[in-house]
């Protein structure tokens, strides 16, 4: 029987590309221990590999890579670990992966991977999804489905990779560090790549405007709405909170408006172009709220907004809001806190 019509109906038979299988992770040991972000990727790769029926192989590079660290990777979920001390040249990395043909190739979105992944992707003429916050497998197509934030997480783009290899960098802190399983065993092998000399990187003092506001438990922030009331109110409120909660780290910050007005230095600016913060409590006094401001404060556990304009966008992002003049509300708050 002539079944060629079936072939036409289904399209030409897909030619299976030989050999693109297994999940590879590139881990980097700058220091004599494994980075949490790499372990997170290995853990996620383990999950994906189990649903694909594939192996997780890890390539460990970096000046401090050694056999013991490679064995650690097995304990955390890899099936095979390849290691080499040094930083490989782009060409040798390309050769290595052309030879091993990963189906999925993952990097941590951190120093090293952030630069290595796009460079390798371009050499392979291949797509790369960065900052992945969710990874799953489309079992029908055997393809990697990746969610990645756009507009700073206002929405997510879900991308299905159809290239060989399917490449992604994984955002830090999204997936847990996997549990150790000291009974796991796997192959550990040293690889010879072409290494390139890396200039020694010594950290320098961060520039003055990068003071870690991140360390604060409670941040009292002011914006342009304080023009009539005076900046001192914010400082007073911070002082009152500090009297009430002497064991908490309390910081004063400003929106871009407040910094532009010269009320507070740029080192205290909460904005995507300044610092992003994640305090337990963020109090926004007289801040209207811009996209950049929300981007910088979205990780705060609780946001309180005080603004005279009931339509100010900040109320859409706040857990608690008080509509009213800051010069009335803040003294009342101070009074309650002190009582």
């Amino acid at each position: 029987m002539d079944l060629s019509f079936l072939e036409q109906l289904l399209g030409a038979p897909v030619e299976e590309e030989e050999g693109y299988r297994n999940i590879w992770v590139v881990a980097i040991a700058w220091e004599p221990h494994l980075r949490a972000c790499d372990l997170q990727v290995v853990g996620k790769a383990r999950n994906l590999a189990d649903s694909l029926g594939a192996y997780v192989n890890v390539l460990l590079i970096g000046d401090n890579a050694d056999e013991d660290l490679a064995r650690e990777l097995i304990v955390y979920g890899a099936d095979a670990a390849y290691w080499g001390a040094g930083y490989p040249t782009g060409h040798s990395l390309l050769d290595f992966f052309s030879q091993h043909k990963p189906e999925i190739l993952l990097f941590a979105d951190a120093a090293g991977g952030r630069k290595m992944a796009p460079r390798l992707a371009q050499r392979l003429k291949c797509a790369l999804v960065t900052h992945a916050v969710d990874l799953s497998i489309n079992a029908e197509e055997r393809s990697l489905v990746v969610a990645t934030p756009i507009y700073h997480g206002a929405a997510y783009r879900v991308v299905e990779c159809r290239t060989n290899p399917q490449m992604a960098t994984v955002q830090q802190g999204v997936f847990p560090v996997p549990d150790r399983d000291d009974w796991r065993s796997g192959d550990v092998e040293m690889v010879e790549l072409e290494w390139k000399p890396q200039p020694p990187l010594t950290p320098v003092e961060p520039p003055e405007y990068y003071i870690p506001l991140e360390k604060a438990d409670i941040i009292i922030a002011g914006g342009r709405g304080l023009r009539g009331a005076g900046w001192q109110l914010v400082e007073d409120l911070a002082a009152a909170v500090a009297r009430r909660l002497p064991h908490k780290a309390i910081a004063v910050a400003g929106s871009r408006g407040a910094v532009d007005e010269g009320w507070i230095g740029a080192e205290h600016m909460v904005d995507l172009t300044g610092r992003t913060v994640a305090p337990a409590l963020y109090v926004a006094c007289g801040i209207r709220g811009t996209f950049q401001h929300f981007g910088a404060t979205e990780k705060a556990r609780c946001i309180v907004a005080i603004n005279h304009n009931p339509d100010a966008p900040i109320f859409k992002h706040a857990d608690y809001g008080i509509v009213g003049e800051v010069e009335e509300i803040i003294p009342a708050l101070i009074e309650v806190l002190d009582s």
Binding site: Y156, K316, G324
Partner: peptide, 22 residues
């Protein structure tokens, strides 16, 4: 090389506006 679609997360729950005199 990639198929793509957009996923918009659910809105952040609207906060509570505290009423009353200051």
């Amino acid at each position: 090389t990639t198929g793509r679609q957009l996923r918009v997360p659910p809105a952040r729950q609207l906060g509570l506006i505290v009423e009353g005199t200051p």
